[in-house]
């Protein structure tokens, strides 16, 4: 295994973990449902895809590597659609987005 392949795999995996960390922080810290969905969508799609891409590069052009690419394609389609469906269902059932806390000068909810 070449050193370049290993470096690319580590960089991809590390950036995926970074996305997951930021998304988890957003899930904890952001104020309402829509912003939290926005954060967790990053964990689901980008973080997962980068981690799987790092694993695929590490694996190289073997059967497992091709399977990992298929998983990436599946995640790329399914995860954003799931986030979209979740947010859309929330809007349609009447949930309004957060407009800023009233005591910080924002308009009312």
């Amino acid at each position: 295994m070449s050193i370049l392949q290993e470096v690319v795999a580590i960089v991809l995996f590390a950036s995926g973990v970074l996305f997951m960390l930021v998304g988890s922080l957003g899930l904890l810290r952001l104020p309402d449902f829509f912003t939290r969905t926005h954060a967790s969508g990053k964990v689901d799609s980008v973080g997962m895809m980068l981690c799987l891409g790092g694993l695929a590069v590490h694996e190289g052009p073997t059967l497992s590597g091709v399977k990992l690419l298929l998983v990436i394609a599946f995640v790329a389609v399914s995860s954003p659609v799931a986030a979209h469906a979740l947010a859309r269902a929330a809007v349609r059932s009447g949930l309004r987005p957060w407009r800023g806390a009233p005591d910080e000068g924002g308009p009312d909810r």
Partner: peptide, 11 residues
């Protein structure tokens, strides 16, 4: 939702 329908149709 068009997005959900198209994704399901593909998946």
């Amino acid at each position: 939702s068009l997005v959900v329908v198209l994704a399901a149709r593909g998946l």
